[in-house]
Nucleic acid binder design. Structure first.
Lengths: 113, 113
DNA sequence: GTAAGTAGTTACCTTTAGGTTAGTAAACTG
DNA sequence: CAGTTTACTAACCTAAAGGTAACTACTTAC
């Protein structure tokens, strides 16, 4: 056990928790889409133009398990399903803003010039 | 072209820029380690106890290419190499704080209870 | 009865991420 | 001259992420 403690194990844990939620190609786009209001499967698919139904369905399930979104089935005549963000998902707004803000700055400084 | 614009292509781009930098098991731990001061290869390795030299070297190179860190070679007698954070890397502090803060909240609400 | 829209699933494949083990080269230490 | 330290690299392998194409089941509209 070092005194400075190797990057503090607790920090690493918490880091991985957040990464599990935001990691991957589709999770943040889905979350952003649902932050704009409840949506049905097809609506999200149209929002994120290049996601396949397989990936969308898979990631929606994962986000549901992570308690970030909720799935509600309506027994209307063409069955509809509505996805919505939970309070926990909603609490990601600040984090999302930071991610976008830093990305804009990064793009300005090193990509776009 | 829809009026609402499918989650705004620009937002998606910026999102992917940030994700490229923070994604993966080792990048954020490395960045955090270097935010605590310049370090040598072996020091970072000791900070992040379970990283292999292969992964560390690979991710250090990647972060250098992304302009987040700098590698400096010293022609001292046992050759030493020092890694340090760039101003751009330093600008990630706020983002990192958000990631950690959200992770703590998440852990409190759904993991640890 | 054929097409279109609802919300997915299934099988298969490729790519990327990450891990393991061992080895290298150069200089210093005893 | 054997062992240690510094900073890696190479070869090999497994697992996870992601993509493609086709298919399902139900209902309504034409």
């Amino acid at each position: 056990m070092s005194q400075k403690e190797d990057i503090c194990q607790h920090k690493l844990l918490v880091l991985r928790d957040t990464l599990e939620v935001i990691q991957g190609k589709w999770r943040l786009p889905i979350i952003i889409s649902l932050l704009h209001g409840n949506k049905r499967f097809g609506e999200i698919q149209r929002d994120i133009s290049d996601v396949s139904p397989k990936m969308l369905s898979q990631e929606l399930k994962a986000l549901e398990n992570l308690k970030i979104i909720t799935r509600t089935l309506f027994d209307s005549m063409p069955v509809t399903v509505e996805y919505s963000i939970t309070p926990l998902g909603n609490s990601m707004k600040k984090l999302l803003d930071e991610i976008l803000e830093w990305g804009v700055q990064y793009r300005k400084e090193v990509i776009g010039k």
